[in-house]
Design a protein around this nucleic acid. Structure first.
Lengths: 241, 241
DNA sequence: GAGTGGTCTAGACCACAGC
DNA sequence: CTGTGGTCTAGACCACTCG
């Protein structure tokens, strides 16, 4: 820590250096970080300072720590992928885990809205996915997804039946794209004729629209997703602390 | 810390003792806690341990710390009341702060749903409020609220015009009830004829229903609120970290 | 200047994992 | 047994607030 002068607290500097190494891919999801004493020596700070930096990485869900084993870069396990980002819950409180039916995968040029949400220039190459998602045996969501083609080379050529339900895990394993954060905007909308047919509802039935932008480790948008959900027997759960 | 044997970490014991004092009202919202060295001496632990306990209280939004001044029990400032618990945002990204028009305040006996949400026996005395809330100049929400009468003595006798927009602040100042946490369940529903009229919408227009249970410092439900919102030009914002 | 919380250190010991 | 993260201490100094 004796390089360029920097007047922020040491633990923040260490924290940012650690984040940088994860963002750069020096440590990949699932990898163990060096032990705390090694990091302390490496950065010429005390172990307490390293711990405070790691506390913050843990709070941001970038690493998980396990006593006796080590500190590991966080991964999108099936559990995390589903429960952390999927907030639809049965009205009885059961978290019915969704399955899916992928309908199509197509290359396209970003339209105005995709360009806005993904922070791209209109016309940039994107990949569009369409799928249905089932809760229990019923189709409950229709989903349109758009991602920048540049981040996902070859995705457009996937056979749509081969794409897994847990896309974020797939993004991470196959394309090295880690979803670190997301912002969801929710609205109530009336189902289009097509949506109503897919969901087995009356035309213009009320649907919950979830418009989600997911961000990568570097803070840039990596996916835009618009889900329209039948909330007759499910709800979106939001906990405020 | 040399009383009854307890094998949890010291900082957790100190944390829980501090929480207890806040819950019991020994320190009220806005009060300063004793300085860290005093707490350390009091509980016979090091200042570092007290700090770790206070870190957790701060994370739970129970206290706020200000360098050079002290540590204070959190209060529902107008800012916090609105932005922490009110998640509707204009589609342009502006946080239009809502105003309200209280319609009625009535005593009643808890029906089945109120009893469920508030963890009361059916028939327990409750107070029901109805109000409209405006975003800008437009009526955008119709809201029904129910609270246990026992926690809010005299509330039922309030002139409804006297009740402020920021109810949580009112609960805290007038009744000593602090809302610490809330759970919201969101659905899309079709407006009833009455709701459509209040909101100036077509009958059966899609509305976002927010069903919120708010919990006090002791973890017990203190309010149930059901808001139905016109999301034509606003959305509910949910950030996932 | 006195008092507060914020940062940082060095070192001890504990609890858990795995050979 | 060794190595990991988790807890705890004691003390130093910094940054901010206020009289």
């Amino acid at each position: 820590m004796d390089g360029a002068p920097d007047f922020r607290p040491l633990y923040q500097q260490v924290r940012d250096l650690l984040v940088q190494r994860i963002v750069d891919g020096a440590w990949k999801p699932g990898d163990a970080l060096p032990p705390e004493p090694a990091l302390a020596e490496n950065y010429r700070v005390s172990q307490g300072t390293v711990r405070k930096a790691l506390d913050e990485l843990e709070k941001r869900n970038l690493v998980v720590r396990r006593q006796g084993k080590g500190t590991f870069v966080a991964t999108h396990t099936p559990q995390r992928a589903l429960f952390h980002f999927f907030h639809l819950v049965g009205d009885d409180g059961e978290r019915a885990l969704p399955s899916h039916r992928m309908l199509s995968v197509r290359s396209a040029r970003a339209d105005a809205r995709e360009a806005d949400r993904l922070a791209l220039k209109p016309g940039t190459a994107v990949v569009r996915l369409k799928r249905l998602r089932l809760l229990g045996a019923r189709v409950a969501l229709v989903e349109r997804i758009a991602v920048p083609a540049a981040l996902f080379p070859g995705l457009a050529d996937s056979r749509h039946a081969d794409l897994p339900n847990e896309l974020y895990r797939h993004y991470e394993i196959v394309f090295g794209v880690t979803v670190a954060r997301a912002v969801e905007r929710l609205k109530a909308v009336a189902a289009t004729a097509e949506e109503a047919a897919s969901l087995g509802l009356a035309p213009r039935a009320p649907l919950l629209e979830i418009d989600r932008v997911a961000f990568g480790l570097d803070g840039k948008p990596v996916e835009w997703r618009r889900s329209r959900c039948d909330t007759a027997s499910h709800h979106y759960l939001s906990e405020i602390v």
